[in-house]
């Protein structure tokens, strides 16, 4: 941890606006003295993780305004554009003269994300976005952002004896004739399986599909296969990735966990989420004759 970290308390509102309240953090190590408070000329810098962060549009700068003694506030309005990805937060302070500006790591403080719980935007909205401030594994503040147009939000996943029922809601597009859930195996474009949607009987935009796991098994499974699930709203239409992004959970790999079921002899299938909250079915070698 940097000795001069600042801490940001975050709050989200129902519309998707994020507020960051920065305080200078008294140094936790043995070094004497408190960390310097960020100067008002500083900005909150969000930098997209990976190579994208070094390309144009890979950084977003949010002005800081004084909101109280020793406190600075940055507001990222819901309307501000933020492409999908992981954005690491820094405080950027102008350096002397023409030198490089200094960047200070931001520690996550209190993240009041109650407004993100159980979001249900209008199913007619053409695009859906989600922004969740979260602590990285090494204790820094980052913002996970999704932008989907259209979007298929995963809902209940009901494991059956050897298959699953997937429920969800479509945003920005309606399921028509020939709508299916499509299972794709990355790297093997020929391996695609389609499962029809059940006749809708719920609220508008809702979809339900049943996936028998056996159909995904073409032969012995020697190593793990991660099948992605897409919703294709009409025959020939572009697929929409099925993900779960409309709440406060930035990663649900360990909390939204479903049991494994036998898909075929020696093959186990498990519905799961990726670290990006995309819904998948994992096939893995398992005990035979189950």
């Amino acid at each position: 941890m940097s000795a001069t970290a600042v801490r940001a308390d975050c709050a989200a509102d129902r519309a998707g606006t994020l507020t960051f309240d920065l305080t200078d953090l008294t140094d936790l190590t043995d070094l004497p003295g408190p960390a310097p408070a960020p100067a008002p000329a500083s900005v909150l810098l969000l930098r997209r993780r990976g190579a994208a962060g070094r390309k144009p549009g890979g950084t977003v700068r949010i002005p800081l305004s004084r909101s109280g003694p020793g406190r600075l506030r940055a507001v990222l309005p819901a309307t501000a554009e933020l492409p999908e990805g992981r954005w690491d937060a820094y405080v950027e302070e102008p350096g002397p003269e023409s030198s490089e500006p200094a960047e200070t790591v931001v520690e996550p403080g209190l993240r009041d994300l109650r407004a993100l719980v159980d979001r249900c935007p209008d199913t007619g909205s053409l695009s859906v976005s989600a922004r969740i401030p979260y602590p990285t594994l090494d204790g820094r503040l980052a913002v996970r952002c999704w932008v989907r147009a259209p979007h298929a939000e995963a809902g209940a996943v009901v494991p059956g004896r050897s298959g699953m029922k997937a429920e969800g809601v479509l945003y920005g597009v309606e399921a028509g004739e020939g709508a299916v859930v499509e299972a794709r195996l990355p790297g093997e474009p020929t391996r695609v399986h389609r499962f029809p949607l059940a006749a809708p009987d719920g609220p508008s935009g809702g979809f339900v599909s049943t996936l028998p796991f056996a159909e995904l098994v073409a032969g012995p499974v020697r190593e793990e296969q991660l099948w992605q699930l897409w919703l294709v709203p009409a025959e020939g239409a572009r697929g929409v990735r099925i993900s779960r992004i409309l709440d406060d959970v930035w990663s649900r790999t360990k909390s939204f966990v479903y049991p494994a079921r036998p898909a075929a002899d020696g093959v186990l299938a498990t519905p799961c989420y990726t670290a990006d909250n995309d819904l998948c079915v994992r096939l893995a070698p398992g005990p035979a004759d189950r």
Partner: peptide, 17 residues
């Protein structure tokens, strides 16, 4: 059969939020 109703969230620090 409570997969869609009961979630083990892991530890949260701070818990107050």
């Amino acid at each position: 059969g409570l997969h869609n109703h009961v979630f083990l969230m892991g530890s949260a620090n701070p818990m107050e939020a």
